[in-house]
Write a protein that binds this DNA or RNA. Structure first.
Lengths: 220, 220
DNA sequence: CGTAAAATTGAGCTGTCTCAATCAATGTGG
DNA sequence: CCACATTGATTGAGACAGCTCAATTTTACG
């Protein structure tokens, strides 16, 4: 699931020059993979499993900045900046490939398709960050949860992981809480209301969306 | 005040190859300069005055994503992506220079110093966005206001616009509210408490910070 | 100098949180 | 494969941070 470089047609042959790292490194569930302030000489791309980019504050508070799905760079920032300023935590077990940054930059300079793919991934990441700022600043709890679910749903759809009205969904309420700036207790309340309205169900590591139109209306 | 390209030593002469646009375009206070979804063939850099990058939601809600100070790119994103996805609004009157994106990219490719300056500006912008996400998601009202004031204070200090304990400060309470996800009424309350505690004063377009240590303690 | 915009203050309300208890699910060791 | 232990979900009661509405004063601008 490392489609980042090969999603578009190869308009040149530099794409094949980018060596795929031999090793695909496994990580276990619920463990920190990379720590804040670590200096990275590589750009890891998750091949399999879910992870988060998390920022910690004093007194135990923490905020999830983004969910990292299979095929995504841990952070696009790492292409330009070796300093990791967030911590990367596994949700499920999985694996990643570590691409050498210098090599990556050379490959980007040599290939329009690699350049375009990485940049558009980075742009999408930044766009999501901006959306999240607006969401956390100005939306209600129900809207925040709806925004998160719709965003993930659309990304998982692109990854062809959605089947009908359901996807495998490893997030716990506390993840949703840390991503939306809410409490897990209140996330539960919001999800109960969604459930009773027949909109969404989360149970047994499975997300089912019955009325995505109603959910999307909350994201406007 | 367009120091972005000339901040560091010129380690090569490409820096001087980047033509400074003849025109320095003026903008009036309190007007939208660039609209959301506009396609830009240039990267504007504010020379003078303050502006915001703002995202609008339904029902009149809006969130300020960042304040743009003299010398800063309107958004680093524009270096890589011509689509503007936020609206840029003037706070004060001022001016900007429009750098051609294609030319800028060539200059970046040719000069380590230009490349480094632009990238580090972009990285700083992204780091602030991540901080803002954590702030809006997990901090109290007083902490949010403190974070904003400290961030602006430090940036204005670098720009040498701070004199002693005071800076010129054109933000109204509604700006602070839209940046912190609060109400202007409650911003007023927070600022009153700061004032009574002898920490900060805002009046007559002037920000004075008497106890920055106490303010910084709120940003941990 | 008059008018519009912003700041200030108060009273009351509500969305979300905290605390706490119970129940369900998941994983572990024997 | 079961009993136990741990982690997560669910629910309720009460508290409070921050909001809304509204009136008044101050400041800025043409």
């Amino acid at each position: 699931m490392c489609s980042l470089f090969f999603g578009r047609g190869q308009d040149d042959n530099a794409a094949t020059d980018l060596k795929i790292p031999q090793s695909q490194i496994e990580f276990p569930a619920r463990r920190t993979i990379f720590r804040r302030h670590e200096t990275m000489d590589c750009v890891p791309i998750v091949c399999d499993g879910w992870a988060t980019a998390t920022m910690a504050l004093s007194s135990g508070r923490q905020q999830i900045l983004s969910f990292i799905l299979p095929g995504e760079m841990v952070t696009g920032r790492l292409v330009f900046d070796p300093q990791l300023h967030v911590s990367i935590d596994a949700i499920t077990g999985g694996s990643y490939r570590a691409y050498d940054r210098a090599q990556l930059r050379i490959a980007m300079a040599g290939s329009q398709s690699i350049f375009g793919n990485i940049l558009s991934a980075f742009n999408a990441e930044n766009a999501r960050a901006d959306q999240l700022i607006a969401t956390l600043g100005r939306r209600t709890a129900a809207e925040r949860v709806a925004c998160l679910l719709v965003d993930l749903w659309d990304r998982l759809t692109k990854l062809q992981m959605v089947q009908g009205d359901s996807v495998e969904f490893p997030l716990r309420h506390s993840h949703i809480a840390d991503a939306t700036g809410l409490t897990s207790v209140y996330v539960n309340t919001v999800l109960r209301e969604f459930r009773h309205a027949g909109v969404v169900t989360i149970s047994g590591r499975l997300l089912r969306i019955f009325d995505i139109a109603k959910l999307r209306r909350l994201t406007l």
